[in-house]
Amino acid sequence: MAAVIETHELTKIYGRQKAVDHLTFEVRQGEIFGFLGPNGAGKTTTILMLLGLSEPTSGSSHVLGFDPVREPLKVKERVGFMPENVGFYDDMTGRANLQYVARLNSLPDSVSKKRIDDALEKVKLANEANKPVGAYSRGMRQRLGIAEVLIKNPKLIILDEPTMGLDPEGINSTLDLIKLLSVEEGISILLCSHLLHQTQKVCDRVGILNQGSLVAKGTIEELARDGIQLAAPAAGQAEGTTLSLEDIYMRYFQEE
C-alpha cells in the first residue's frame, strides 16, 4: 500500500524546547491512523508541519507526494484539515460558511452547490444549513467542520481532536462518521487525540507520541503484544489478556 504521509526524522525546535524530535512514521493509503499522545506531546506541531503552516527545523516530510515546505498550496488543495476548536463565522449560516471555503478552494459555484448539499447530507445538517452558525450546538459545529473538510473532495483528512468537548452520543456519531468516510470513500485519515478508548474503536493503526518522539506504533493487537513484553504484567492481570489501548498507553507513560 502506498503511503499518503511519510515523514523522515522530522524535527521542530521552539527556542530550547524540542516539540517534535526526529519523528519518522507513515500513514498508508485508505487507513485510519490514530496519532495519540498526551497534551503537549507535539501532535499539533507535527500536523502544522505536514500542512506547510510551520517549517520543520530539520527532517523532511511528504504528503500525497508533495513536500509541504516547497509546495504548501498543493498540499492544502488536497488535504482536508479540521483544527482543534474549529472556528466559523458565527453571523453567517452554515451553508454560507461552507460556500466561503468552497470559493477559497476556487471551486465554481455550480460545482460547490452540489458538494455542499452532499456534505451537509452526510453529516446530517441539511435541515440546519440555513441557520447562523452562532446558534449551533457544539456537536453541530463539529459536524459542520467535517462537512467543510469534505467540500474539497480530499484524499486525506487530518482531524485534530475531533471529539473534544462532545457528549457521548456526539462522540459516537462523529466516530461513526469518520469510519464511514474511510470505508465508503476510501479517504485516508490521520486522527489526533489524547482520548484513547475512543480512538481504538476506529483506528486501523496507531502511533503513540510522547515528548516529541514516537514511542510505539502498529495495530492495537501488535501494541498489546509488545506492551506485555515491555513490562511485566500488572498484578491481577493474567498473561495473554488482550490489553486495551488505555493499558498500553499507561504502561508507556509509567516507564517515564
Binding site: 500542512l51 503552516l53 498550496l73 498543493k74 492544502k76 488543495e77 488535504v79 484539515f81 483544527p83 476548536n85 474549529v86 472556528g87 466559523f88 463565522y89 458565527d90 471555503v101 477559497l104 478552494n105 476556487s106 467543510e148
Partner: peptide
C-alpha cells in the same frame, strides 16, 4: 478576531497564500 474565533487556522489551511 479571526484568531480568537479559530477561523484563522482554518483560513490558513485552505489553498490561499
Amino acid at each position: 478576531r479571526e484568531r480568537s474565533a479559530g477561523t484563522l487556522s482554518k483560513l490558513l489551511s485552505q489553498p490561499v497564500y
